[in-house]
Design a binder for these strands. Sequence first.
DNA 1: CTGAAAGCGCTAACAT
DNA 2: ATGTTAGCGCTTTCAG
Lengths: 322, 322
Amino acid sequence: MPVTIKMIAKEMRLAVGTVSQGLRNDPRIAEATKRRVVQTAHEMGYVLSDFGRALKSGKSNIIGYFLIDITKSFYADIMKGIAREATSNNYGVLFSAPLQEYANEIAQIKYFEQKRVEGIIISGCEPETWEYLERLNKNGIPVIVCGDYTKKSNIEEVVTDDFTGGQIAAEHFINLGHQKMAYYNPEKKFNYRLNGFTDTVINTKLPSPVVCDSKDGLKKSLSQANRPTAIFAYKDLDALEVMEIANSIGLKVPEELSVIGYDDDVYSAFKSINLTTLRQQKNEIGKLSVVNLLKKINGEKIKTTLLKPELIIRGSTSRKGG
Amino acid sequence: MPVTIKMIAKEMRLAVGTVSQGLRNDPRIAEATKRRVVQTAHEMGYVLSDFGRALKSGKSNIIGYFLIDITKSFYADIMKGIAREATSNNYGVLFSAPLQEYANEIAQIKYFEQKRVEGIIISGCEPETWEYLERLNKNGIPVIVCGDYTKKSNIEEVVTDDFTGGQIAAEHFINLGHQKMAYYNPEKKFNYRLNGFTDTVINTKLPSPVVCDSKDGLKKSLSQANRPTAIFAYKDLDALEVMEIANSIGLKVPEELSVIGYDDDVYSAFKSINLTTLRQQKNEIGKLSVVNLLKKINGEKIKTTLLKPELIIRGSTSRKGG
DNA sequence: CTGAAAGCGCTAACAT
DNA sequence: ATGTTAGCGCTTTCAG
């Protein structure tokens, strides 16, 4: 079992209080005594226990990170950002990857409460879990939504500015001379990418983009005479699907069809894929989630933070007609 | 601030001990009282604090996971396995992603000690950190090496059976009639894949595989008249590099060159990549790391666990000569 | 400059 | 059947 200050005190024939203060460099303790205390503690292999301190102070110095689907590589960088920023603020990150079941998620959050986390960062959850989270956020533990939202709520978010992302995609297509465009989102997940995209297209007096929400719909749309010449996909994986379908019906990318993805996953940079895409500031999303959460923990008011995506131009887009 | 049993006791005019026992369904408390206690606790929004309990029991119910490079998608699945297995054993996972600096890593581990984690799972660290870890593992906190090792040590591992992986790759090539083979590992990282590969090739009386540890070396080797017709790459990303180089010098994959990767990253299944590769049981690696760590925490002896990789045959390998 | 003691939330042994 | 109390490791206040 671990060495305690009590043991050190006994060993040195000092009072526990003196040892405690000595270790924390309290000015009221004589320099010589401090040195001896620190020295002895080191020799005995003492490591401060956060239990005692946390119990006393009421501060656990832990935040919880709740991530519903860690498989998406998107979150790997976010996690790194979270872990590093938390660490550099002397906070620990308690990690949880619940199964996508309501009961499971609530159990996880309760577990966080048991551990007395000071705040929770959440990346996705079942809709039913929101009610619990919002209550928690209101009277108790601050919550920040990170990376993506399942549902709009009054909880502050740190997310990519999807509306701007949609605008940027549309502008790129428009600059390349495209007129007939489409949007592909087989997950049917609500987001602002479509809004930004459509708004920009319409404001330029071009025909409203076709919205495809299934593989079949996309295929059908691409096979028509009056087919779109540019497609904005919900995410990189969807963009790959678009390219495969285009390939299967004999459409060359980018000569006959321009494609833009979203996320800039690792593989998108491969020469054989070479996808033009909107890169999200993943690491920064994680970092700012922590920054905002800590502010919230300290009682500061914060706002939802939107991070601009960046257009990475590669080989899947070109001037209309090649 | 959170509701405590003390508050509940005051509210109900009961003793704290009674409330504590009532909540934990102690048989000595009357059923009626128990119900009232549970009911009141619920109404007051009570959540048990692990501080008190941990302080009393000396058990934190937390393990630490130390992951040096979370960007590799390889670890995303491992983390999921770890988090889920830990959760189902009522353990929390304190996550850390230190920068690759010796001092930083030690600081992180000390932080784990402060939080009184009961065990540590580690995926990669600087060589200098090993000494500290081994000491910790010996007299104090159990450690498990997960997914990969930086250095061989006396700490038990949960890793893929790389030797067998190398054998499987060699056998596949041999079955396809290949005779001249090569191994490509630009990271120059030591591992048993090469051993298993080479052993099998030599035992079949075929010429020992050429080992390439740089892009240039690989290119040179592939340009010779007596070039290898099959290459085993250290990981999928390296296999992609092999394919790109092959392409750049006009060698068709798989007709003129067979390639096997390692890991089965997401993109390897893409039609445009279609890489034959050795899949690691990532989720299982995470899960068993926790299982073994908990055993170690409970004082059981455990052994290094090797998980068999599985050959996923796709389109990057074919019979010699097409 | 250092010691003593109370208290953070909880549990368990003992007392009523 | 319930109450009382001591103590887990630490900080802090107050005495000496």
